[in-house]
Amino acid sequence: MKAKVWDPFVRVFHWTLAAGFAANALVTNPEKDLHHLIGYGIAALLGLRVLWGLMGPRYARFSSFPPDPAAAMGQMADVVTGRRRVHLGHTPLGALMIYNLLLTLLVVVGSGHAMTTLAFWGIRWVKELHEVAVTWAEISVAVHVVAVIWESRRTGVNLPRAMVTGYKEVPDEALTAE
């Protein structure tokens, strides 16, 4: 079965966000304009994603992947018991990671901007907040990527490819859930 899940905006959002994040975390010099420019670009992407989460198509909406600890436990139980259940939209664990990433990135861009303002210029805790939030985002991204690969192998659905093409290709014998 082939299901259309990610609209073009979500896909472009995802890969631009990933590229911008990688550039700022690993490459750009934080004291230079490029770092700030990319950072504000990411801020704009996050803003658009929040709007899209409120009024975009079905699978892009926050209401289709609410934070749901019980469902997340269920997914972990699937992992442990070897039950293959495919979620068409974001999986419950994936949803928690997405909120974690979006919120952490908001802290990163907020503290980053604050560092350049008169009110917070040179204030040490603001810089430390930026650094701690970046570190947390990096750890989260590493877990995110490992989890995506893990879940792709476990469920037989190539998730990174779905984030490129927009379609999840679900093996016929798999159980599906929302």
Binding site: L26, E138, I139, V141, A142, V145, V146, I149, W150
Partner: peptide, 10 residues
């Protein structure tokens, strides 16, 4: 790839 991603982040 997973190992590389982790190593890169750390």
């Amino acid at each position: 790839i997973a190992t590389l991603a982790l190593a890169l982040a750390l």
